[in-house]
Write a protein that binds this DNA or RNA. Structure first.
Lengths: 141, 141
DNA sequence: CCATTTAATTTGAATATCAAACTATCTAAT
DNA sequence: ATTAGATAGTTTGATATTCAAATTAAATGG
């Protein structure tokens, strides 16, 4: 475990990184008629595949009541579909429609462009190392 | 510049990291009677010091109209104060009050705890390297 | 069966958000 | 100096988002 000063510096660098990413994403989605929370749902469903409401709500950090309304809108916009879950008639699975997947892929491309800009000062080796760190960190939290 | 596959892997790792951080923060602030956007404003003002409305709106990724209402609430809650800016009578500077700084510091401590958990599998050298990468990335975007 | 828990929805109220219109002030060009 | 834009922030009116709490339907474990 690193000493406290380094941890604090990393903490602040992470917060700065997170704030900028939020700001970028907020600006990007405003021009697409989708809210930040909605695009997060699309991102998670795109990366993960079909999910139950409960599980998606946890991943988004919102209540299931909020998620019901959010998914209603995405369904009305043709981006998401609901389907009865196997083996538990209370549960609903939500998944991207073809249009939803298209939006996911377009949004993913925007992220990729941004990522490329971020990485512009790192060489191949450094990118590899950075990826390994990110993987370890994601696994730890 | 790294090859495309690595960039895509990093892109997805960044998105996953970002989604989890968002989810964590959303859950954390719900218990404190502050919205996500409000705590972002507090985080930015805490890290940066006083800012004009325009500049803060850009950093948050919201319109100035939205920010006016957001800051109204933070002022009513005693967390932020408004002050005429030097040299331009149209401009307003907003800054944290003592109570606002206290909230910032408490929230920062929560982030630090999370950061420590994330870093648990990295040794001192790796933390140093990771910090250097983050700094380069933040500088590039 | 029955009590309890769980998954999702609905409800009602408070907030948050946007675009567009507006006010006040600054800047530049004549 | 005057005036025509440009800029900073607020207000307005309409929608959208969010929560906690109540509700419905289904599962689980005595």
């Amino acid at each position: 475990m690193a000493d406290n000063t380094i941890q604090q510096e990393i903490n602040h660098a992470i917060i700065e990184f997170y704030e900028r990413l939020s700001s970028w994403e907020q600006s990007v989605v405003r021009d697409q008629g989708v809210s930040l929370a909605q695009i997060h749902a699309v991102e998670i469903l795109g990366a993960h595949g079909a999910l139950r409401m409960k599980s998606l709500a946890e991943k988004l950090g919102v209540t299931t009541g909020t998620l019901t309304v959010l998914i209603d809108r995405l369904v009305n916009n043709g981006l998401v579909s609901r389907q009865a879950a196997e083996g538990d008639r209370r549960a609903i699975e939500v998944m991207l429609t073809d249009a939803g997947r298209k939006m996911f892929e377009e949004h993913d491309q925007l992220h990729l462009q941004l990522t490329k800009e971020m990485l512009v000062t790192l060489d191949d080796d450094e990118c590899q190392q950075f990826l390994q760190f990110l993987k370890k960190i994601n696994a730890a939290f």
